[in-house]
Design a protein around this nucleic acid. Structure first.
Lengths: 122, 122, 122, 122
DNA sequence: GTGGTCTAGACCACC
DNA sequence: GTGGTCTAGACCACG
């Protein structure tokens, strides 16, 4: 399942899981239709509570990235590659918007910020 | 004092205050030496707890942006304009790094991300 | 058999099947006496568990819409067209009553709700 | 707080709570800015788990009906009366759409359904 | 076997 | 004091 949890970041565990699975789906690493392991299995593997996984799964479901079927399990949603690209962009945009206000109040121009990020990201 | 607090974002109030004051100092809007109003005054104006302001002030102090003089109040630190530019960049970089992991896991290239941000920021 | 199952709705599979077959009977699409295919056949076609079909069949039986003949299979009940109309109405009414409490607590008047539904349904 | 919980309906408790509070906000019974009692207090009063209330509150927050401020409490969102009417309609529409598929498969015409509902609702 | 809901109780960050 | 997160464990409905 390729999930790595860190306790240092201060970021809630369920959010870390959401982001990692969302990224794997959005980049096509987890193709549509894939059955995810039972939440209890994952919880045991990661040594965390079932509820924490569940919360992450709920967000994935709400985002339309997985389908939850009671009694059967959870499956990666079938999304065509065009929509997948859109979702990837949406996820990134949403994340970026968490910081956008601060950048604006620091009076960054779009050009300036874009260049700085090119530099920082590498 | 030009501080706007919102309850919608989920961001802690002290952090909202920190970011706004930090930005005003980093962009030169609040020049070095400026005396900040007493925390009680601000607390009353914004209708929030004194503790909250204090926490924001502590962070500003720790970041070297203000100097706290016991018994006299708090003053914007004297920083030459070159260092000010550096501080502005540091603040932005630190903020950006909160999201960097997610962008990487979404497999954005530096170029791609930079372009998208140019678009989103406008 | 004209059954379409979706994993998106969150509605139990057996309920989806019940509603679709019930509707086909109530509207006359499946006339009285029609033999329903063996549950194993349907289960295979829809790629779901036999138990699930069985549960749907039980509910149809309980609603008086089909007759189960041990060893022979299941048959659409013989209902005259007047009773059929009544059943159709009963099914709809029962479904509507699941939401009625919420509409009332939202203070909808009968007239208002009726008009809105005319609009939403189209 | 005017919340009534029933264990008969099969509807999850958190959903019952959500609908009741949402209705009170949408109809103006709980005006914007109202501070809701602490979730632990409500939980104690209703003799249910804090988490159950929390889940309801999360949905209210997501629906934009309340603002949650960590450390301060939860407040009814400030919504002008025009938007309030829109929200009321949206909530009802969403609820109605849970049944719409079944009505369609029963071949109800819009006119017919609308009339029946007028009758059933009274 | 699966997920869905609920409980009781803990610890933390924020105000 | 508030809400936010997480735990461990129970019971139920669905397949």
């Amino acid at each position: 399942m390729d999930i790595i949890i860190t306790n240092r970041s201060g970021q809630p565990i369920y959010e870390q899981i959401f982001e990692q699975i969302a990224a794997q789906i959005a980049t096509g690493k987890l193709p549509g239709g894939t059955a995810l392991p039972p939440i209890r299995t994952i919880a045991a593997e990661l040594e965390i509570s079932v509820i924490t996984i569940k919360k992450a799964w709920e967000e994935l479901d709400r985002a339309g990235l997985i389908d939850t079927v009671t009694g059967k399990g959870c499956f990666v949603a079938d999304i065509n590659s065009k929509d997948l690209a859109k979702i990837k962009e949406e996820l990134a945009k949403k994340k970026f918007e968490e910081s956008i206000g601060f950048f604006r109040s620091l009076s960054f121009s779009a050009q300036e910020l874009s260049e700085k990020i090119l530099e920082w990201y590498e």
